[in-house]
Design a protein around this nucleic acid. Structure first.
Lengths: 245, 245
DNA sequence: GGCTGGATACTTGCATACAAGCTATTCACA
DNA sequence: TGTGAATAGCTTGTATGCAAGTATCCAGCC
């Protein structure tokens, strides 16, 4: 993505973006609005746009070489997602991290994940091959210290559990609220030891799933979901400007 | 709201909408975009805009006496909410009801509501006065056959349970997915007998909550959440054009 | 009669122009 | 030197114009 860097406040090299690959756009007209949205979501999640950062529509439009219209549509969706706060005639800012919201996200995630776990346990013989594969990928990410890859396979693992449960869209509901939590985790990185523990917990969860051991799974998921939250207070002390409440 | 009727396809009386009450807008600049969004959400929920109905940006703009810009922003948010489907150069339609999505919404709602119930049970002495009050209001709505009022207090009751649990925002996550379910319920109305049963179930749930009886509460909530879903197949047979999958 | 081709009207996507409002700086004046 | 008010520069909100693509309908042809 060449436009990744375009979001951080650095002098734009003023390079035009001619619609590249008019052949590739078979069935993906990729609206500019959507591209801006995805760009902003990942930028906020990855803390390239820190909590509280000022977002000017005109600035964003210039940086991304588009007009204000698609930027505005993307921002409207981001407000719904709770990632952006806009005060009508004053300005737009990246939303601050609310530990209360993070705790609510933890609640939603834990509750739904436990429920999904329970549903999978009802399956006489769930297919955990994909889960095992993802665990291997996480091990690899750990050895190569590739945090981005770990995050991706972490998401994929939890998503897969919901897929196995038969409720894949429920994961989307979790993800919406989890965005707050993701920023907190990002703030704690890099922490190789934490990654090690997370992978071990993932392994235990998959084991419990295969054994259809609901009580153990419940305890593991609960502990797992609360892990990121534990870091809240210390991270808040370290970056007080990023938090609210 | 004078613009309620303006959404259904009937000849517009061509009445200007002069910004009424310029005094009332003390601290509520109420963006046009938001008004359009709220208007469309309630119209879709209340089936004034039926599933599959064609939504033309220009038509909507004319009907609501605004320009296309706020309409477009509202539609973008509605797409995120899963209520609207837009095909780039073809058209915009109210999303069809997917029984699979409804089932997923049921799963999310039931799981989170049980979790919230469990959390409230942990409270030594929860304050159920508001819940009892809402039950009274529901009884009144039943006697007067006021379905809209019943819906409102129904929402309020479930919302209150989440508030008591300490996770009020979790209810918002439920509500997002519940929109699909709401349309299904609306399709089944009016059914006074069903309202009677729903109120009775609500009463039992509050009783169980007060008694901190988790197993009973779990069973009641599960049954309660599945009630609307039971009507799915028959409603689909009755209105095949409103469904997909 | 059935089918194919083209023009027309409609759709959404994007860019630009204008309007309204808030903030902060700065300049005038006491 | 301190205070205050006007102004300039920003912000977001809305309207409008243009471009590109698609479906439809009607005429002409086989």
């Amino acid at each position: 993505m060449s436009s990744h860097r375009a979001l951080v406040p650095e002098p734009t090299p003023a390079g035009r973006d001619p619609r590249l690959s008019p052949v590739t756009r078979d069935r993906a007209p990729t609206r500019t609005s959507d591209r801006v949205y995805d760009e902003l979501v990942s930028a906020i999640r990855e803390l390239r746009l820190v909590p509280g950062a000022s977002l000017s529509e005109t600035d964003l439009a210039e940086r991304l070489h588009v007009s204000r219209t698609p930027v505005r549509e993307a921002l409207a969706r981001l407000v719904d997602a709770g990632l952006v706060r806009v005060v009508p005639q004053v300005g737009t800012r990246v939303g601050l991290i609310s530990l209360r919201d993070v705790e609510e996200a933890r609640f939603v995630r834990e509750s739904l994940e436990v429920a999904a776990f329970e549903k999978v346990c009802a399956d006489p013989e769930p297919d955990v091959t994909v889960l095992r594969e993802l665990l291997d990928r996480q091990e690899h990410s750990y050895r190569t210290e590739d945090y981005d890859a770990f995050f991706a396979s972490d998401e994929a693992l939890h998503s897969e559990i919901f897929s196995l449960s038969g409720y894949p869209r429920a994961w989307q509901a979790v993800q919406r609220m989890k965005l707050q939590l993701d920023r907190l985790r990002r703030l704690a990185l890099p922490d190789l030891a934490a990654v090690r523990e997370l992978i071990d917990e993932h392994t235990k969860i998959v084991d419990a799933l295969e054994a259809a051991d609901l009580p153990t799974g419940r305890a593991l998921i609960s502990r797992h979901a609360r892990r990121a939250l534990e870091l809240g207070p210390s991270l808040r002390a370290e970056h007080p400007d990023y938090f609210t409440d």
